[in-house]
Design a protein around this nucleic acid. Sequence first.
DNA 1: TAAATTGGCGCC
DNA 2: AAAGGGCGCCAATTTA
Length: 558
Amino acid sequence: MTGNTARWALAPLEDGGALLAPLAADGRAAGPAVREPDLAEAVRARPGVARWVWRSTAETYPRLRAAGVRVERCYDIEAAEQLLLGHEGRLGEPRSAAAAWARLRRAPVPSDPPPRSAEPGSQSSLFEPRAGSDVPFEGLLAVYAEQQRRHDLAEHPGRMRLLTAAESAGMLVAGDLHAAGLPWRADLHRDVLDELLGERYAGGGEPRRLAELADAVSAAFGHRVRPDLPAEVVKAFARAGVRIKSTRRWELEKIDHPAVGPLIEYKKLYRIWTANGWAWLQDWVREGRFRPEYQPGGTVTGRWTTNGGGALQIPRVLRRAVVADDGWRLVVADAAQMEPRVLAAISRDPGLMEASGHTGDLYTALSDRGFAGDRSRAKIALLGAIYGQTSGDGLKNLAALRRRFPRAVAYVDDAAHAGEEGRLVRTWLGRTSPRPAGAPEDDEAGIPQDDAPAGPSPAGSTARAWGRFTRNFVVQGSAAEWALLMLAALRGALAGMRAELVFFQHDEVIVHCPAEEAEAVAKAVQAAADTAGTTAFGPTPVRFAFTTAVVERYSDAK
DNA sequence: TAAATTGGCGCC
DNA sequence: AAAGGGCGCCAATTTA
């Protein structure tokens, strides 16, 4: 009975042991719970288990990894709870297993614990039991069984199952990424800082180059102006006869004034100093690795976030510090035009599917089909449609786009209309948008009420802004799902190698591997892209392409 | 005095 | 190039 489809529930205990139970197809326990003295040994002793069902991957997986136990698949009950609540239009209700158990028993529902911020260099925080984790094992089993039933009630039960499985796989990948860490040369990072910012002054003030630029700004205005205070800068320009609404770079660039140059340069360097300067290095890089805590599904659209360290916003100039170990390489792979290809797959627009049917440049293919060979116009038009552009060239070219690719444009337009009317929208697999602020919460998920009282200015700019959000949500969110499945496939493919996934950023992965494995890894990446395409969207002519570079340092990729 | 908000900019 | 969607992080400012 423990064939390769078996599922077991697993709950770690504080003394290092674990409770386990085999599960039947309907999610209920198929046998008595057993207690084992050692969590990792209990898992190791059951190689036939295909999927481990547990409360939280972040709680359990690091302990297994630390003991050298690899888990192929899991089901993360709290991640699934979040997705199921969202699908049911109940986003915002507490998502902990304890809360789900309380709802089942009609007991008072505990609020979720506040999000914990990562401590630099921590491995330990992942081990700490969280408040709200006090669910008895039978409660966990009951919540899981109920979740299985709730999958059946979803709009597309099969896709919903795939979604929770994919999110769970993402949790495993996140654990792997944290454990591996991104190779980071602190000495090279310091070289970059010295080069850009100049030396630091004792006492913690601005580095030399920033001080010089601040002086240059003041000199240009003829009086002391602190460039990091927007209010002061706006006032200084007003005194000089230039009226600006903000000090954003694109606004400053339009001004003809000697302060603009040093001001923009100051902002750029100030950002590097405060966000990724010496303090960041001290906090986040240990023993040659940068180990952020990744949070799959950390955003409403399903994109990941990281907790501390700003791993998804690392300035390009610091990629010089990311260097493979001796004899190793970085396989840097970037999914080319991921979102337009996803739109092709989910809208089933014939023309867009055809243009996405090969791994060559999508915008060139697009321009040959409707923009007289003008690649940049095609690109602007498509991105404008996905993002809901309200002005500029994107809008001008939208008409041509709509003529040639009507179903694709209609798909995102429908999502925008739904958002403007306060309805919910879903990604391809079923991740569901939140409600706009102020929307009624007691109606059926997303179904508009005919007699709904007018909310705060429903047809106004707030509604249109929400429409842009839902328009983008269906594409960005479905793209995140493709990425999740790609990661899951890649993780499986790398299992037999020494290669490790060390970085993930929306549509880009980095694998660190021995030089001799690089070619096989590059092939595995493209294979994972193809697998993810058909797993997510079913049979589709759309191809998902990776641009791959094998390099020793990240900055050498493209 | 601490928490929340704002402005800005880095990444996709 | 700009501007549109998603974020996190920092410093300064405002609010409680």
